[in-house]
Design a protein around this nucleic acid. Sequence first.
DNA 1: CTTGTTTCGGTAATCGTTTACTCCACTATA
DNA 2: TATAGTGGAGTAAACGATTACCGAAACAAG
Lengths: 346, 346
Amino acid sequence: MSTMVDVAKRANVSIATVSRVLNGQSRVKPELAARVMEAVRDLRYEPNFTAQNLRRNVSGTLAILTPNITNPYYANIIAGIAQAAQENGYSSFLFNTEGKRELEEQILERLTKHQADGAILLAAELGSDWIYDYAREYPVVQCSEFDPRFPIPRVCVDNYKATQDVMEYLISLGHTRIGTISIENRFYSTATRLRGYRDALAAANLPAEEDYIRYATQGYTFKMGFKLARSLLAQEKRPTALFCISDMLALGAIAGAKEMGFRVPEDVTVVGFDDVEYTTMFHPYVTTVVQPCYQIGHTAVELMRGLVQRQQVPQEVILPHRLMVRESSAPYDGLLVNFASRVTGC
Amino acid sequence: MSTMVDVAKRANVSIATVSRVLNGQSRVKPELAARVMEAVRDLRYEPNFTAQNLRRNVSGTLAILTPNITNPYYANIIAGIAQAAQENGYSSFLFNTEGKRELEEQILERLTKHQADGAILLAAELGSDWIYDYAREYPVVQCSEFDPRFPIPRVCVDNYKATQDVMEYLISLGHTRIGTISIENRFYSTATRLRGYRDALAAANLPAEEDYIRYATQGYTFKMGFKLARSLLAQEKRPTALFCISDMLALGAIAGAKEMGFRVPEDVTVVGFDDVEYTTMFHPYVTTVVQPCYQIGHTAVELMRGLVQRQQVPQEVILPHRLMVRESSAPYDGLLVNFASRVTGC
DNA sequence: CTTGTTTCGGTAATCGTTTACTCCACTATA
DNA sequence: TATAGTGGAGTAAACGATTACCGAAACAAG
């Protein structure tokens, strides 16, 4: 491995000149520059990133913290981040934290150790005050999840509005018994969507029964959606529409409803959230809220870049969502088909 | 940000002593060590990774090259890699190369620039001679895809044997008209599975019609499986079983077959490959070859570690696969239901 | 008391860059 | 001709760690 010293010797110039030629900061006589470039080629010289970083006091690297890359929603956001990072000349460290605080903190320490210039968090939980300790000193941006109490730049969709859109749509279809499959976690999006659900019900003077709400206990998984939909639909006065806070839950809910003998959407309407690829694989295609995942990731990197360059960046970027009506939702036909009558075949 | 010099001053020792205390290489009087540790705590000293790396001439970082994180198969392998990397004290750079050579090469250059100690490739194509140029000089390991001509350590399953298992199973079910959905790419696994398919047919004296083979032109996607299954099944003498070289293709194939009015598995048997989560979401659950994705990733990191430490490592690690029989396969009932008779309702 | 051995800690070189400073040669002006 | 001004290149000091080398102190043996 050759270094600048080797190049300098071969080109018969000083290392300062080599550096100048390579970085093009100040002018160098064309003749010398040519000699340097030739030496660089001959020796296959490649600058040592580590040395550059030490000197420049940057790392050119972003740390990405994700609870789980296997989740397609996160995978899509990460794809956006990775792409944008590459475009901006950053590398990106990927860390699976599985939501474990000790791991998250261990990774944020890379900031203090100068191993990363900044961190993008995909799943900041409510009440994670300790994150703010890092954010005060180092560039941190939050993607889709955040705690509104902390002034850490974030990019997300308007979860409240999106939920209102869903609820308005369901109500406009004539549904009056609307259930929701939420989740047991400390995400702001979860709380916001649940609040949106309750507020919409209240605004429309519809009954807000606690028994129309279920909480996934083991993540946004197909299995959970399956199980909870069955529990919701097993009630005497079952809901006729289900608002699921993630597509995976919705997919599971549809399967669960079908397994019980219900038709979707004729007997039960199911709506999801996120718009992952799988929503349009199996019929009924899932009516859902489209989140611009890729763009969320992209924007996060842009904020990051601003932060690193110590520019003023917006505290919050809200990207547009869209209610995508597909096949899993239909007007309420007025006949409240209950569980018993369906399974006995009407 | 405080440095070793600050710590040394505060503890009234030399920086060499600070370093010694922190790294515990040679012995230091307990009293001094205590003073140093106290100063470290007081100043919240954190070693500068970049400086350490420059001096030690390592980066503690692995580069992971993947064509697409959004693909659940790759996502699972990456999860294994990320986990194992963390356990071994490595960070991992993630790069989406989308199979583009210029991007891949740009990233392998990080090796020469000392930004990564080694690279793990998830999708080395056949004939990528240039990869070998890097592998000769730096630690490189290949995950699931590789070119057998190059002696670069790799971890994979036995694709040929796995295909034989699938084919034997299908033949044992009584199928004689077996089609395959392959793909247009330069992966060794693709070639091997196709060879396994052809060899098995020949060994059983079954007709190997070129019209029973289709090639996905746009990746391992649901849409491709959907389209190609329809094309395969539209033939007069349609195949009664379809071997798809990825689960996504199989999922699409099942949907395509259903759309045409075929029942799976009664009218058409479909088998996949990989065993991603989605195979057990919708009925029929997909019969498939289970690849130990997570373990593949894990093993790759272990090989990597050996390589970095200049130990002898095995040239090839073959992990066990398993044929998982589920709902999408059934014995051939002897009645060759053709397309026309099915769609007209028998 | 001298000499040899061992232990411990400090000094300074080093890793490979970037860049502030300095210096030199050359041109322009009076 | 003397002086100031300018562009271009070299010298050396960083950046923050690790570590080879050396010297001082402590102790034991003769």
